[in-house]
Amino acid sequence: MTAPATAPAATDSTNLPFLYRHYPREELLGALRRMHLIRRFEEAAEESYMRGLIHGTMHLSIGQEASAVGICLPLTREDQITSTHRGHGHCIAKGADVSRMFAEFFGKTTGYCGGRGGSMHIADVSTGNLGANGIVGGGIPIAVGAALTAKRLRTGKVAVSFFGDGANNEGAFHEALNMASVWKLPVVFVCENNGYGMSTSTERSTAVPNIADRAAAYAMPGVIVDGNDLSAVAQASHEAVERARRGEGPSLIECKTYRHRGHSKSDRNRYRTKDEIDDWMANRDPIARYEAQLSEFGIAGAAEIEAVRLAVRAEIDAGIEFAKASPAPATADLADYVYTEQQ
């Protein structure tokens, strides 16, 4: 997406949240579209899974759409991200094509990874997504490496590392934040704290009450935001990205959010109460909140929002059809891509 422009909003701009002061209407609608696209994609993937069309398991990010979309708003297509096992939302937020994502989940050759990676390794290098990762904390040092390249080769790119609350206790997290700070690298660390590392709450696993508290240990700014407030997330991201681009080094953003579904498709949700889940779903849904704001600030009315929903549904349906019709890889090609073919 294009760099944010200072565009006047529909009404008096001085009291509006950040988002509405910095992004033109079409960008705002684009963000809504992407949030719906994530939500509907996850639901459709879930349905396909329940029908036995998807092998393995999946980690759904329903409820975390504002975090993914908000963080990616200030990024260019060339900026890079690394993601987690819960990476479908990040992939879409960074600009991926859902039909190629479905194709990947169905194990087809037209998938982003040629059917070899699946949900946990979904990637779209053309839009800067270096991949979801099956190892908790696996992508954090890799993002720092991408930032090192940006600095060495002076490309001006910024790298964003998405990870969850669980990852903040992995050694790789600490090593990566330390190095990024020591070397002042253009990387933004984004922790999507949804309260649980699989079944273990942050209270039971993390020594500090907020993951952002750990930023101080690595001499970088640590910011806590309501991860379900698109504007708040976008603002924090904007500041961190600009800081990185100025060469001032890394930042840590903690998005407080919640996942509606269990950790994976095998999760029975025994570790949290139905009331808690219902409360987040009913009262703090990021899409509902955004739509309310768009309406309140006169950016988009019910009809336009419905149009976005319908367009997204059509895009999802077409994506599934594409995936179903795509070919599966040949067994003979098993060993392709282990190494780089050399002439």
């Binding site: 899974y49 329940m50 029908r51 036995g52 393995g56 398991t57 498709k265 095998s266």
Partner: peptide
Amino acid sequence: VILPKVDMDMA
């Protein structure tokens, strides 16, 4: 009302 897949490797 379908019988959903609720586990990996569930046929």
